[in-house]
Each structure stands twice: as structure tokens, then as C-alpha cells.
Nucleic acid binder design. Sequence first.
DNA 1: ATCGTTATGTTCGCTAGCGAACATAAATCG
DNA 2: CGATTTATGTTCGCTAGCGAACATAACGAT
Lengths: 239, 239
Amino acid sequence: MPTQHSPRQNCLLSCLPAEDYLRIEPHLELVEMPLGEALYESGMQIRHVHFPTTAIVSLLNVMEDGASAEIAVVGNEGIVGVSLFMGGESTLSRAIVQSAGHAYRMRGQLLKDEFFRAGPMQHLLLRYTQALLTQMAQTAVCNRHHSLDQQLCRWLLLSFDRLPGTELIMTQELIANMLGVRREGVTEAAGNLQRAGLIEYRRGHIKLIDRRGLEDRVCECYDVVKREFQRLLPPNIAK
Amino acid sequence: MPTQHSPRQNCLLSCLPAEDYLRIEPHLELVEMPLGEALYESGMQIRHVHFPTTAIVSLLNVMEDGASAEIAVVGNEGIVGVSLFMGGESTLSRAIVQSAGHAYRMRGQLLKDEFFRAGPMQHLLLRYTQALLTQMAQTAVCNRHHSLDQQLCRWLLLSFDRLPGTELIMTQELIANMLGVRREGVTEAAGNLQRAGLIEYRRGHIKLIDRRGLEDRVCECYDVVKREFQRLLPPNIAK
DNA sequence: ATCGTTATGTTCGCTAGCGAACATAAATCG
DNA sequence: CGATTTATGTTCGCTAGCGAACATAACGAT
């Protein structure tokens, strides 16, 4: 796409006062994020952080036997690589591009320098990290108590919130990986939503038809997280 | 107990260089933490942070219908109230005393001041927060994929790691709340462990008999989190 | 010692989701 | 265009954990 790209499409970056933004802008590099690319693997040292603009990234925890579960989603409201400034330099989770698009990346060291200036960027990043914490906590409870149908609704809404359009490119197999369930389970749950006229899909393309319908069906977890993002982050299109 | 108390029993505090420690020491107030006390409820503004010494605190997410699940445990290796310096002033989770004991508390504002001095305390707190993130993420995956038996082992080991002795005062009902499962399920799982000679209990008292046995039975999640704590935090008895 | 309370043990039928095996259909590639 | 790959649909039996109802036993207060 020859569309106009700008770092300001990312909420965190767009929240920065001009002075701070201009200082880091020269160090932002536009990168393409193809579906399925791993920004980092478990335990790997993180060299860059990424500010998604149109891409969506999924944070997954993977276990020894290959079983996995998504613990959070990051779109243009956030940043991938918080463990860099938190001090760990690496995480045990895996960051996978869940929806192709673009992001701006920045060298880890530069972000750290910026963070330790203790200016607006630090405050933003800390607040964002807390929002991420909330998202993870709520995901954990949702995993425990809610039905696959509800979780799928939550997942779809989270994704569509972070997408420009109404079409998501994603196979059921991948969704199953993210949710940590069987592919067949997703087929069934998605079938339910399709029959109810809420979504429509063909082989790897999911189209949002009736957002209200999804919102009626989803568990409280979706709203809880959304409200907390709005509370913690400046009222851009946050999340 | 007329035992000698000292803030240095808390790992984070004991990691501080003398200079930083002495500055905050006068503001630390020893408090007793009775079983079941709520340090804060969902959404409440946090006035104090707590550095547990002998107490253990459980962070729970509670849902509208009352269902809940533990997302992390904090003992003398950590601090309760990270959202204070993260910028949110409140969390959606609930902090409950899971094992009675003591903690030192400090006024929120003072901790924030200390945090924003950008000294050793800030680094420690950030690294601890990342460890907490890891714990939450792993808990989420564990919830999804592991059996109740394994989760109970994990929970017991996490608790005993944070206790001075080998006896834990805790009913099965409470454990069920934490794990987000039925009480009957815990009865059964605990029965298995008892029959295998790993623990022993009578009405609200669980005694650790065979730690190795538990370690053999627990899922990987326990070790994963433990190692990450050791990596991130100075090698005190960390977790 | 006795009573009431509260923790634990046990049972029964039920359901969501699992694991495996397979059928079909849609895209892709030569 | 047909052939291969890959995504989706469907079935079957199975198991862990649920929800409810109840029995028993340990403790604590009087």
C-alpha cells in the first residue's frame, strides 16, 4: 500500500508533546510486519521495541510441549517490548504478528535512554505497562471461567478494535493457538457466530458484520479491559 | 510472637544500598496482617504499599458473578501495590492476606517520591514488576492447560517458598477460591497428595512433608517462574 | 462434656472441551 | 486446467471438572 505512514498513527507516540516526539522521531524506522513473524522468542534478548501502527501483535506464552496461550494483544495503542525498560532485557513470552501491517521500530538502547530521562515518555510507558498487566490478569481469569464462545467474541472484538477495517486475515488454526484451545473448538464457536449473523468468513478471512451482536455475547472481560485502558491512557482512540 | 522484626526481612528492602535504605527506613511501619484481610479491593485508591516479611499476599481478580482467580502471589520477595508507581493509583485486582504474618507499609506518596529519584529503588521495583508480569503470564497458561493436581502442587510450592516454616494455615475452601476451582476439586487433589505422602493436613493446617515429591509432580510453570525471579532479582533467597 | 459451627469427604449426573480420525471444499501452483 | 496443499466441517468416545446435595468429623466456645 502506498498509503501515508506516520509514527503518529501509534497512540503512545501521538500522545507525546512535540518536543519529546521530535527528539525520538529521527530514530523511528518504519518496518513491515508480515503475518506470523516473530518479533522475539522466549528468552531472546530484545534489540528493538516496536510501535505498531496498522499491525497487531500477539504476546504468547509457549510451554515445553508446544501448548500455548495468548496473554495480551498489542496494536496501535501500545508498544511491544516493555521488558526492555523494565530491566529484564528479555521476556519468557513470544511476540507474533497476528495481523499484518506496519510498525515503527526503535533501537532498544535509545528507548531506554528516553525512558530514563523521566519525562512524559516514562509516564506513558509506565501507564501503558499497567494497562498491559490488567489485560493479562483479566485474560487469566477469562481462561479459567468463560466459555470458548465468549472468549472468541472477546478475541474478535479486541482484534477489530485494533484494525482499520472490518476484515481480519486469520485462520481458525491460528486463533486456536492464541486462545490455547483446539482448532475444532474454534470451528464450532465460529460457526455459531456465523449462523447468528455476527461475522462472516471464508478460508482465512473473517469479516465483522454485527459488532453490537458480538458485544452482547461477549463476557465482561472485554469491557473491563477496555475501560481500564481508557482510564490509564489519554483518551485517544485508546485500545 | 515476640520475634525480632526488621524491614530487611523483605528481599527488596534488603537489596537496597545503605544510603537509600536509611532514607526510607523511618517511613516504614510494621503492621500485622491477619488472614483474609484485604489490602485493597478492585478499583480502590491505594494509599500504602506493603513490603511483606512473614505474610503472604494473594492478588485475585474477581468477576461480576463472584468467580475469582489468583493471578499472582507476593511474599517477602516483593511488594504489594505496584500500580502506585506505575501510575494508575489503583488496580482491578484484589489483594488478600493468604497467610497471616507481618509486613512493613509505607505511604504511597513517599514510595512514589522514592521511585522518581530514579535510583536503585526504581530499578529494583521495575525489575520486580517484570517478574510479576511473568508470574501472571505463566499463571494464565497454567490455568488453561494444566490439571488441578498440578496447579495445586504449584500453588503449594509457591506458598511454602514464601513461608518460614513448613506449616500453612489455609482451608481447602480458600485454596479453591484462589485457584478458581470448586472446593470439592481441591479436596480430591489434596487427598491425592496426602495419600502420596507429600503433605499432611488437618482442618485448615497443611504441613509440608516431602518437598521433592511435590517438585516431581508439579508442572513446569513453577520452575519457569522461579528461574525468572532469580534472573531478575539479586540472588537473595529471591522467591 | 456438649453443642453448634465449620471443614472435609463422597456421591451422582452432566457438560465443555479434548484427541483422533476422517471428509470436504477452497485456494494455489504448476 | 488439474493436482496439491491447506483450511474448514463433522463425528465419536472420553475425561476433567462442574453443580448440587448430603454425610461425617474436627474444632471451639460454653
